[in-house]
């Protein structure tokens, strides 16, 4: 019996070839994982009439951990986003998005090592919108005390468990005194429980400016959903773009790890795209599963392959195919063993 059972959600477009490359690397790391493949995304529409079949939901509920490839939400068709539905069904309230400099990607900063904790379930994403007259649309921004408290607690606990020093609350409570004020109040209440972790708060617009001027000053950021959506991509841009940006959606009973980039359907089947974002999400997953040694092995090998630039994909100046890049990482792991 395998030590871990993980649901693999290849998604559509380039997702399947990316996930195969990632599986090749993770399996070669020596970690004992049984993968159970399930469908998700556009390819499910014809077969199941939904982007997220019940069978997939049941499998994730059983395994409680999944690695997901990219999917696309069709615009204007009335189909619910698979990503949003997953967050709702499993109450994956914490979107964890690290942004760390990768040595090979030359950036104008010496150090960036930020972990964003985006509240994932409420704010203006509560899907409460109305045309209140023929000239006016409104969207309710829903911020709750328990929702704010638990994301702050999640962030502080993560910081404590991972040796981080400071957690910032990002808000606009000077203007949205009720909603963002409640978010900030809950954050301050939680901060009292963690006296060993420094805490602070910063207004979101100032935070954006500070991030692009001096990102090294930030450690962990806790954000309501909308600011989190925007600032996590900003942080990804600081370290080189979405091609290397990992992500995890975590609840109390389930965690789904995924890249945040799109499925690039025009490249599907060409084995051209860089699988690194899903791979670093897989590394996050291994750490979540307590497999630090395997995670570190893969990370070291991946950085070495990137640094050599012999077997890298087109987006970082190489000509390697998706699977050739993955095989180079595997070879590097074995060479170091």
């Amino acid at each position: 019996m395998a030590k871990h059972v993980v649901t693999m959600l290849p998604g559509e477009g380039t997702g399947p070839e990316i996930c195969e490359a990632v599986r090749l690397v993770i399996d070669a790391s020596g970690v004992d994982i049984k993968w159970e493949y399930e469908d998700i995304g556009l390819d499910c529409l014809e077969k199941y009439g939904t982007l997220l079949p019940d069978k997939t939901i049941q499998n994730i509920a059983k395994n409680k951990v999944a690695l997901k490839g990219p999917t696309t939400t069709p615009i204007g068709t009335g189909h619910k986003s698979a990503n949003v539905t997953l967050r709702k069904v499993f109450d994956l309230y914490a979107n964890v998005r690290p942004a760390k400099l990768i040595p090979v990607l030359k950036r104008p900063w010496d150090k960036i090592d930020i972990i964003n904790f985006r509240e994932n379930t409420e704010d203006s994403y509560a899907a409460i919108e109305h045309m209140v007259s023929d000239e006016v649309a409104q969207c309710l921004k829903v911020i709750t005390w328990p929702g704010s408290y638990r994301i702050a607690d999640f962030a502080f606990k993560w910081a404590k468990d991972n040796g981080r020093k400071k957690v910032w609350c990002v808000h606009k409570a000077n203007i949205m005194k009720m909603t963002d004020g409640l978010f900030l109040d809950a954050f301050r209440e939680v901060a009292k429980k963690y006296p060993d972790i420094e805490s602070g708060d910063i207004i979101v617009d100032n935070c954006c400016m500070q991030l692009v001027r001096n990102p090294a000053q930030f450690d962990c950021l806790v954000l309501p959903n909308l600011y989190g959506d925007i600032l996590t991509d900003l942080c990804a841009g600081l370290v080189g773009g979405l091609g290397f940006a990992p992500g995890a959606n975590v609840g109390d009973g389930c965690a789904i790890f995924e890249a945040v980039h799109g499925s690039a359907p025009k490249y599907a089947g060409m084995k051209k795209v860089n699988p690194s974002a899903v791979l670093v999400s897989g590394i996050m997953m291994l750490r979540w599963l307590g497999e630090e040694a395997a995670a570190a092995r893969i990370e070291k090998a991946m950085f070495a392959v990137l640094d050599e630039r012999k077997h890298v994909t087109y987006d970082v100046g190489g000509t390697a195919k998706t699977d050739e890049y993955a095989q180079a990482i595997v070879d590097k792991m074995h060479a170091k063993a």
Partner: peptide, 18 residues
Amino acid sequence: NRGTKVWPGFVSPDLLQV
């Protein structure tokens, strides 16, 4: 509740409700 449908249909017992 908080934008997630809680009736009719399945509701996770873990779902945060206010």
